[in-house]
Simulated scan of single mutants.
Amino acid sequence: MTPSDLETVPAECSALVLFSGGQDSTACLAWALTHFERVETIGFDYGQRHAIEMTTRARVLERFPEVFELARTRLGDDHVVDLKGFGRVAESSLTREQEIRMGERGLPNSFVPGRNLVFFVYAAAVADRRGIDHLVGGMCETDFSGYPDCRKDTLEAMQTVLNLGIERPYRIDAPLMFLTKAETWALTHQLGGDALVDLVLEDTHTCYMGERGQRHEWGYGCGTCPACELRARGFEQWRNR
């Protein structure tokens, strides 16, 4: 299938993946390529401290066709949106130099208020222009930091808002919603075998600190931020299952 052929795939058979280049969005990309005939990706530069993810996501996309056969015929365009203005408004420890700690509301101060909601609004606008009905995100409410915009109820409400506001039959797919991190590792292996797991280990980025200097068994990262701790614990549980 050529790039021009991809654009003729019906909207209901097409998906736009919110792709940060991390472990979860990489698993979601493989899932989407398995379920849809045409898949595009979108990334967001919101002034995140771990801006290295904007570089690593490009590397992951470049390598995907090497390790995942369906990507050779189904993976289409990548879109990058500049949201630095939003990042300056919705300040958190992910957008400025600040120690990650628990806040007064019972949420870690790494929570960027409304981040996923904003992501979906921009993704829906791109999807409308591209003729795509499915929006795929790696949100999860099982092993997560408690962010309210990662919960199933939030995404269901967001889907309703987008359908009403844009008058398009969008569906938000969150294939990891009720998976633990160990189960996400297992799904990655199920979808793409050792080659896809190796890609996750070597090229994806999850660490909030943007650390790429130290390689652990579970990949690169500082090893102490919440994202690294979740990834490391999940990898250990999956490996010892």
Rank of each mutant, 00 (worst) to 15 (best):
E104L: 13
E104F: 12
G106V: 07
G106L: 08
G106M: 08
G106E: 05
N109T: 09
P113W: 00
G114N: 05
R115Y: 07
L117C: 12
V118Y: 04
V118T: 09
F119E: 02
F120D: 00
V121Y: 07
A123R: 00
A124K: 00
V126A: 09
V126F: 11
V126K: 09
A127G: 07
R130F: 01
G131S: 04
G131E: 04
H134E: 07
H134L: 09
H134K: 13
H134Y: 06
G138D: 00
C140T: 01
C140R: 00
E141L: 02
T142M: 06
F144V: 05
G146W: 02
P148K: 07
R151L: 11
K152T: 13
D153S: 15
D153K: 15
L155P: 01
L155N: 06
E156S: 14
A157Y: 09
Q159D: 14
T160E: 15
T160D: 14
V161M: 12
V161S: 11
L162W: 02
N163D: 12
G165E: 10
G165H: 08
I166M: 13
I166N: 08
R168G: 04
P169D: 03
R171C: 10
R171M: 11
I172H: 01
D173W: 12
D173G: 10
A174H: 01
P175W: 05
P175C: 06
L176V: 06
M177F: 07
F178D: 08
F178T: 11
L179Q: 07
L179I: 08
E183D: 11
W185V: 06
L187W: 03
L187H: 07
L187V: 11
H189F: 11
Q190E: 15
Q190M: 13
G192K: 02
G192R: 03
D194S: 11
D194N: 11
L196P: 02
V197P: 04
L199H: 05
L201W: 02
L201D: 03
E202T: 14
E202F: 12
E202H: 14
T204I: 03
H205F: 11
T206Y: 00
T206S: 11
C207S: 07
M209K: 14
G210T: 08
E211L: 10
R212N: 14
R212Q: 15
G213H: 12
G213N: 13
G213D: 12
R215H: 13
R215L: 14
R215F: 10
R215D: 12
E217W: 07
W218S: 05
W218Y: 09
G219F: 04
Y220E: 09
Y220R: 13
C222H: 02
G223Q: 03
G223L: 05
